[in-house]
Structures are given as structure tokens and as C-alpha cells.
Design a protein around this nucleic acid. Sequence first.
DNA 1: AATGAATGAGACTTCATTCAT
DNA 2: GATGAATGAAGTCTCATTCAT
Lengths: 194, 194, 194, 194
Amino acid sequence: MRRVLPPDERRAELLTASRAVFAELGYHQTGISDIVDRVGCSRGTFYNYFDSKREVFAAVLETMMGEVTGVIEPIDVTRDIPSQVRDNVERIVRGIMAEDVLRVLFSEAAGIDAEGDELLREFYSGATERIETALRTGQQLGVVRDGDTRLLAWCLLGLLKEPVFQARLYGEDVAVSALVGELLALISSGLLRG
Amino acid sequence: MRRVLPPDERRAELLTASRAVFAELGYHQTGISDIVDRVGCSRGTFYNYFDSKREVFAAVLETMMGEVTGVIEPIDVTRDIPSQVRDNVERIVRGIMAEDVLRVLFSEAAGIDAEGDELLREFYSGATERIETALRTGQQLGVVRDGDTRLLAWCLLGLLKEPVFQARLYGEDVAVSALVGELLALISSGLLRG
Amino acid sequence: MRRVLPPDERRAELLTASRAVFAELGYHQTGISDIVDRVGCSRGTFYNYFDSKREVFAAVLETMMGEVTGVIEPIDVTRDIPSQVRDNVERIVRGIMAEDVLRVLFSEAAGIDAEGDELLREFYSGATERIETALRTGQQLGVVRDGDTRLLAWCLLGLLKEPVFQARLYGEDVAVSALVGELLALISSGLLRG
Amino acid sequence: MRRVLPPDERRAELLTASRAVFAELGYHQTGISDIVDRVGCSRGTFYNYFDSKREVFAAVLETMMGEVTGVIEPIDVTRDIPSQVRDNVERIVRGIMAEDVLRVLFSEAAGIDAEGDELLREFYSGATERIETALRTGQQLGVVRDGDTRLLAWCLLGLLKEPVFQARLYGEDVAVSALVGELLALISSGLLRG
DNA sequence: AATGAATGAGACTTCATTCAT
DNA sequence: GATGAATGAAGTCTCATTCAT
């Protein structure tokens, strides 16, 4: 009944379970019970490793953040740039589509409470900055047209988030390659003809 | 102490207060108390007009939905199309920026509960269909390039939602005209140069 | 919309409606709304005629009490007594079976509140006394065997109430003549053979 | 302040307290507060053990049902039957008289709500069937006269319930032996003389 | 005499968190 | 380090009753 584990393993176990449960039920519908039941430990144990429900959610997001940004490869200016952009977009889309719990982040992480919003700000600040850096580099290389990089970064974020969000809402899967195609077309030449 | 009002006025009063409170605190942080305290009536009165917290949220969204879509003007093909598109985009952006509670819808309405998600689905189905219709018309007119209208509609939604969401997150205001400019540029010719 | 009635008529109308609704839904499930909706008047009007839900229930019971006891015919000792007993039993059974709201009285009137219990006590005191009087008369006539008339009165009450209660519980109707037969057999010679 | 108990004990404690409170106040007048105050634990603790007020009432009834039916001894046909019947009747009467909360069941359990009525139906179905079985056996042994066993079972139920109910109503105690005497006399030879 | 909007106490219930073991 | 019973604040919602009109 009592299962003693080295702290690191127990923590990892709880983190994994939390990620799965948050992904399945969403933040608000998830109870601590759902997490500890999945792990097979007690409520008390959970609180030995995390201070609160929000904290474990934060921890889940943090581990994810690393995984998502890890798939991005820096552009090598000596090689064909468009194909590298395409590859990056595809990797990112695949990455966030695969990460079910991101959908939760994208759709209901806001408004949990004041500290939760702070967490969210940090998350998005990081993401936005990365995108802005990439955009500025592109502008310097003459690949990206001029414009307010912050607004553009938000727009790009929206392009990536919304399909994920909508797909979750309807419980559908999205054809990644089709989506990547549309995104690239949008980025490269917009929506209008001619 | 007791303030008697015609039902329509009381309902409107409650609706307005609800909208304001939801906008300020978000859905989950809002309690019925916050709403009735603002109106200056009793809990019971609230429940004479709405069956539940979710229902009043739904009602708020419904009134908003009308206001937002109301600003869209149908395109007149005998006149200059790009400028009409620009005007519509600007009106929409202004509309949703002005509507604080939309930020709540955009950021935390998901995951309330099963019926709440159904409500959300209806909301987004409606919006997506409208956009798709517009896109298909544009395609027939030769103004919009080919592509999966559903995916494109989602992308457009994302372009509109994300800046609103981000602005709320940081408690900032966005320069509408700058944003409209970037959006139009994105739509008309993408992000990449040449 | 506004329907002005002489007080007596309005009161009678409310009383009739209350009786019907209590009979259908039971005391606890009945709301003032159910009563006034049936009458087609406002809540306020109801409270012009009755002080409370319990009071209208009391009034309903009172009118009923009269109707039920009214069917009992005094025994005429110069005529055949058993057949008069049979006739009375049959009339009583028919009377209480017909009076749907009696089932409510029999099954859930207790425990409403302190005053409600007082009301119930009065109701049953009256009934018990009537039965005891009849029993004592019977004993003096040598028709009824000796015994504690109070306990016997309760037993008779139980014999009358329980079938009504059970029938309501299962939503069934009872064959009155069969029931009367069994009751008379029980009264006249008990349950055991020989 | 915090009192930790093994679940079985806590549950038993809550059950005992519930039984006492229901017996004292009746179902409708009883609040969860009354129960937990008596136990000296928190509302939350109550809900760790029972899902609802109705459920704890059901649990109380269930434990009681067992106690009451447990006192009945099967008739041994090789021994004197009437005295065994007398003993059983006496044990049953004593059993239900001792069980204060049965008075609540007998007087106000109906009409709580749809599920409550279902519970009641099950309770009475069980009781009625037991009695019917006993009656049929008696008929086969030639001890009980012919008759509709269901109606007779209801009559017997009524004979047992009503004195209990009346005693509660007046806050009186009943002389059990006198009652048993009257019941047996009624059963064996009815109410009428000769 | 009639209306019906307003009231508010109090009911039941949930669940993140604590802490004695 | 682990347990899980206990907590209690906070939430939503009901409905008999009141009273301004």
C-alpha cells in the first residue's frame, strides 16, 4: 500500500500524471484526487511535492515550454531559408499538437487567480520574445518585411494557438500538413490574391 | 432598501453589471455576490432573472455577439473592395477591443463545464461559419486565394483574438490603428518580403 | 389580467386549488407558485387570504375533515347493526380513497413544523375521539368486545390509513369492495382461523 | 479540535448521531448542521461519508430495517403456534417502539423527493413481502384464514404503524403489553363480540 | 382587492488544503 | 517520506414571505 520512492522519482511521477490529467480534463475540472488516484499515492504526498494545484500546473507548463521551444532549430543563413522556415513551422505545429496539455494552457489558463496570471505572463513573455527575436533577425536578413515585431509576434502566436484551440473544442484532429501549408501560405503571401 | 424595477430594466441592469464584473474578474473569480453587490440587489433577485452563473454568462456573450457582428458591413462588389475590407477589419478590431468581456471569452471560457463548452462551440461555430462564408464569397470573386476555408477562418480568428488576449494579460491597451495596419498587411501580402 | 373577486370566492378558489395541488405533489413538493398558477392569481393575493403555506394546508384539511366525517351515519340500534357497520365502513373507505389529499395527510403531514404538528394532533384527536365514542357505544350495546378504546381506535385508524398510504406509494388504485371485505372480516373475526 | 478516527468509527458515529437527530427533529427539520454539531466534526467530514442528506437517511433506515426484522423468529410448527405468534408480535412491537427514528419513517418519509419515494417503496415492498410470506405459510398450515394476502399485509402494517405514529404525535409512551394484548385479540378474533 | 418584483435566510454541497498519525 | 481523515470557507441556489405599487 505504501510505496516509498526517491523524491525525484515521486515528483516526476506526479508531474507526468498531472500533465495527463490536466490535458484530459482541463484545469478547472481536474481535482487533486484525479492526480493522486492516477499515481496511486495519497493527497498528503502530493502536497509534500507541490504547494498547490496552481503550482503543479505551473511546473507542468514549465517542462512543456522547454520541450516545445526545443524543437525550434536556428536558421542557418548559408542554407535555403524558406525550407528551414517550413521545417520549423512544421515542427512547432506538430509539437504543440502533440502536447495535449497545451490546449489547456491555450484555452483556460487565464483567470485562475492573480498568481496564475503572473505565470501566464511569464510564459507568454518568453514565447513572444523568442518570436520577436526571430522576426528581427529575419528583418535584418531582409527576409521579413518591416513591421511592429510585437504585434506580429502576437499574430503569429494567434495563428498557432487558434487551430489547436478549435480542434480541442470540437474534439477533432487537424491534418497537420494541411494546416502547415495554410500557415506558410499565409505567412509568405497573405490571404488575398494577386 | 428595496428598489422595485420593471423586469426589463432589472434584467438589463443585471446583465450590464455581470458583463462588467466578468470583464474585471474573469468568469471563475466572479461570484454572484460580486454581481448583485454592484447592482445593489439581493442574491434572490439575481436568481429571479437567471438560472445560474453560466446562464448569465451565456446571456452576456449573446448580447455581445450581436454587437460585434453588427458592426460588419457586407461588401459591395461594385465599389472598391480593399477599402471596404479595411473598414470592416477596423470596425471588428475596435468592436472587440472595446468589449472587455470578450477577453474573458477569449481566454478562459473553455473548461467551465460540459454545457459551457457546448455554448462555446455554438459561439465559435457561428463565428467560423460567418468567416467561411465571407472567404468563399471572396474566392468566387477572385479576391481571396484558394485554400481550406475552415482552417483559414480559424487562422483569422486567431489573428483577431490573440492581440486582444495578450493586451488583457498585460493590462495594456493596443494602438488599434497599428494593429489594423499589421493585420491588413498580413492578410494582403503575408509576412515575408518579396 | 387583474381579476377582482368577492373575498369569499377568491378564498374558495384558492382552497380548491391548494387541495388539488397538495394532493398531486404532496406538501413539501408543493410551492406557492403551483397554487397561484393554477388559480391564475398572484402570490400577493394568496397571502391576502392565508398567512402561510401551512395555514392553507390546515384549511384544506379542515374542509376535508368535515366531508369525511359527514359520511358517517349514526348507528340505529333498532335496525340490523352489522349491515349498518358495513355501510359505514364502506362509506368511510370510499370517502378517504376519493379524497386524494388525505393521502398527503396520512403520509407526510407530520414534521412540517411545530405548529403543523399541533394541527395534526388536533386532527387526530378529533378522529380518535369519534372512533372511541363509537366503540364505547358498541361496548355498551354488547356489540363490541371489551378493550382499551384508545388503542383500539388507533388500530382502526391504522387499518384505514395504511391501504390508502400504500396505494399512493405505488401509484395504484385499490379495489374498494375487496378492501372493505377484508376490513370487515378482520373486525368481525380477526385473522386467525377457528 | 481535530479528532481523527478510523473511518468505520466515524461513519458509525455519524450514523448514530443522524439517527438520533432525525428521531428528534424529523427529516425535514433536520439540517446537516444538527448532525455534525452533535458529532463535533465539520460539515466536510459528513460529506466524506455520505453523499447527501437523503443518503444518510437511507443508511439509517437500512440499519434499522435489519434490527427490526432481526427480532422475528421463524415459527416452529412442531411447537405451540399461538404463543410463538404472540412472542413475535411482542418483539416486533417492542422493536419498533424502541426505535425512535422509525416514527419518522412512518410519518414523514414520504414526499421527500422522487428518489426518496423509491427508497420508501423498496422498504415497504420488503416488509410487505415478508408479511405476505408469513400469511401464506399460515394459510397453508390452516392457521390463517383465507383472504387477499396483500391487503391483509397492509392492514397488519397499519396496525403496527399507527400506534407508534400516534404515540410520537402526542409525545407519549405506550404500554407495550397492553398494545400487544389488543393486537393479538384483534388478530385472533376481531373486534366484534360473539 | 390585486399585483409581482424583491427579499434573504438558510439549505446543501465541493474541494483545495492541513496535519495527526 | 507517506498517509488519508478532517477541515471549513466559499459557492450556488431555493422559496416562503414581504411590500411598494
